[in-house]
Write a protein that binds this DNA or RNA. Structure first.
Lengths: 95, 95
DNA sequence: CTTATATTTGTCAAATATTGGCAAGTCAAA
DNA sequence: TTTGACTTGCCAATATTTGACAAATATAAG
């Protein structure tokens, strides 16, 4: 599974000197679940991005972008045609 | 929902002068389901691509690419940050 | 070593989403 | 008004995702 998102929020949490148990309740999930999200084992709910961005002091759009990119990555992960597919996607989107 | 894939396979089917009821059994689904797939209301199973490519006389990789692009499109459909996310994805993938 | 705190792992039931088919519908041509 | 092609609505079966909890592990301090 892709995990740029999880890696990023772990970095941010550590830079902000926050513990899992401090962040998790803030976004209304339990600690183990946040741990799994950071390690890419689970997916953060899209609706939770704003709160998370707030406590981690990162721009919400930037976090959303990372989240979206990871979701797309999951689609093409391991696909030999991944690059072709992105090219195609870019083409499709310009319409 | 995105639907370049469905649009394409409908085009191909028509160019090959095939009816839904001819193609559907070939890929082992019923006619209404294929209709829905062509109109983007349902997703074709990835495993069915090879057979479909064969009957529609299109390169399998090309069809797979379209399929993957559509799946990614579904992730960013309606997202204001869609383009940013693609940029990010491209960045992530180069690693 | 023993305790305390942080994180991870495993498991599970509940909730949610996806699947594929069928029956019935529309629509156009003859 | 019958026929053939396609579409729509709906349902039950299946699969996937979700989130929590208990327990395990890890790290650090006394």
């Amino acid at each position: 599974m892709s995990n740029h998102f999880g890696y990023k929020i772990r970095q941010l949490r550590e830079h902000n000197n926050l513990l899992l148990r401090q962040v998790a309740p803030f976004i209304d999930i339990d600690t183990p679940l946040l741990s799994k999200i950071e390690r890419g084992e689970r997916v953060l709910k899209k609706e939770q991005i704003p709160l998370l961005a707030k406590i981690l002091k990162i721009d919400e759009d930037e976090l959303t972008t990372l989240w979206l990119a990871d979701q797309m990555y999951n689609v093409i992960d391991g696909e030999p045609l991944a690059n072709e597919a992105i090219k195609q996607l870019t083409k499709n989107i310009k319409k």
